[in-house]
Design a protein around this nucleic acid. Sequence first.
DNA 1: TGCACCGATGTTTTT
DNA 2: CATCGGTGCA
Length: 757
Amino acid sequence: MNNYLNNLNESQLKATLQTDGPMIVIAGAGSGKTRVLTYKIAHLMTKGVDPFNILALTFTNKAAREMKERISGIVGEEAKNLWMGTFHSVFAKILRIEAEKIGYSSNFTIYDTEDSQKLVLSVIKELNLDKEIYKYKNIYSRISSLKNSLITPKIYGQSDELIESDKLAKRSSFINVYVEYINRCFKAGVMDFDDLLLKTNELLSKSPNVLAKYQNLFKYILVDEYQDTNHSQYLIVKALSDKFQNICVVGDDAQSIYSFRGANIKNILNFQRDYHEVNVFRLEQNYRSTKNIVNAANSIIEKNENKLDKVVWTENETGSKINITRLLTDGEEGRFVASSIFESKMRNQYNNKDFVILYRTNAQSRAFEDSLRKKNIPYRVYGGLSFYQRKEIKDVLAYLRLIVNNSDEEAFKRIINFPARGIGQTSIDKLIIESKQRKISIYDVARNINESNLSIGLKIRNKISDFVLSIEKAKLMLKESNAFEITEEVIKSSGIYKLYKKEESLESINRIQNIEELLNGVQDFVDTQLYNSESKGTIEEFLQDVALVTDLDQDHENQDKVSLMTIHLAKGLEFPCVYIVGLEENLFPSAMNINSRDELEEERRLFYVALTRAQKEINISYVITRYRWGKLIDSEPSRFIDEIDEKYINILTPITSKKENLSFNNINRRFNRNKIRYNKPKPRIPSNYVKVNRASSKINLFDDNLVTGNIVSHVRFGKGEVLKLEGKGNDIRAEINFEKGGVKKLLLRFAKLKIIS
DNA sequence: TGCACCGATGTTTTT
DNA sequence: CATCGGTGCA
């Protein structure tokens, strides 16, 4: 049982065995910090600590899930009782339990960034502010950062400095927007992302009983990626750990890349000042990468002034040098990377999933998608517009949200006239004004539309009543039905499905597929809930879950595909072969972040993160001209290329370019000399191209594979024999005789069957 | 009210 | 370039 500890090196072991008191683990990239966290928790549990008393906060849900699995591997099933997840998901859970204590109902819904920004925009409009000056996105991000620093309107009002700064920006009404935004969220029974942390702080500081309850509950607290916590998160951790002081934080200041989200690197730099008698552990041996990679990364991070002392080293092989390739255009860069991956696969027997393409901005993915597709290399794009942010998905979710929480204003506004049912903006505005005056939710105004004396015509009143009725009808299902049944009902009765079904454009077919994929997801959720916990998979639980999942959290590991993602998303991941693309001034480092030392250091840390994802090979590329905002612009090589110690790099000239002997030291000079105008038209994307999405990867999986007589297994019904197949395309049904449950007819696109024989 | 078209506008990174 | 919001017409 205890031999799991043999897998640790000396410093890892020390960090693992130290269980009590405040401690910090400063862990270099690839030094096994996840391993330490995992074993530490397992160790605590073997020592007899109840998993219910352990709180472990991770950066992504995926990290939490994987860690849980690994802990289960050591200590067994018990691990599922750990409190483990992201800050946002764990405290959403707690807030739901304690909601009444801060005046919320426990079925509050969560606004994502889009909802929040829309609300800010309506507030700006309602207050008659000039939207040229009050840019809603800026206002929203200001609200967000104030919240993350726990600056409420009241505190704002006491700070001359803050007031003055808004005056200077000629938007002294900012505070009015802020106040109204908060009121509206509260009245809508809604929390935004930042509220999940802010309200937790509020809860803990206002209610000593609640604080004591959770202090006693969480006897051991562990925080991963501590360098990326913001002030709000910092205070929560501080409050909760105050009693037992069994707080273990793990992080790497060199990988702090989220300051734009309020992350405060000082949290990790000052940890030793914040707690008494802190045990400090350093993990400096890297097990991930070759010597070349580790050294090259070190040579980069050395350029930063602001950092903790730490020397990352490795005993791994020397490995190959980092290849740096210059290309003419972004299109050429795409083709270069695709063929390079193709060759490397052949040469080294790599799989697709051994490769990742990392870029600074999501918009860059396009060129690589095109070229990989042409070469028939399977790939998957992470991030960007995530699945749950797609319009059709958000529409369905809005119905569900409104059913669960009638007050949800943004959900209401989103769907009151979608699909179009003849309720126009003018009528909706009247409802909103009325709701403000009477201080009730818009939904309640709509519900009592016939008793009101609003100037809305009879026809439209009836349409509003019909809408309300359909929501009320769905509400009746809440108690009886699980998330899947309700979602299915909503998709049908709302008319969303019909709408896209009858329009036969590529776009709508895609939307249908996404909606079906959502149904798959809900079914999946219900099944796992039934399996993992006592809960029955209600729609409330699903909505809570869905608001906080990200693209990365989804399981796609078994698929052999090249990954494409931003460097931010890649944190914590590792790949044998890494392509870092678009290494150009104003792109990476981003033009927004080159005006101060701090900003530039964060970009440099980002580059460090990118380099340290690699196990074996790194390929860096940059281009001379790139399409940005639809225009060709000239670029210069990133300063970061110059910063890598020359010992660790190879400068390559691609075959497609002129054979020039481009020596490293005159890259910059050369570029200033030959600013090449490159006027070749951008290659067109084939017009019959449909963006590959997740829906198409799951649906119709069995069209060609399943035949009568197959033995299959189903998540709920277990094993069964396929008796008959009927229908085609999306509507293929199988009649299956299950050992448990007898004969069922299942739509193949929903029933996730595994073929056994 | 709904649809078709037009011009303005914007891209950093995300829970 | 691509999306979005606004405008004008049926």
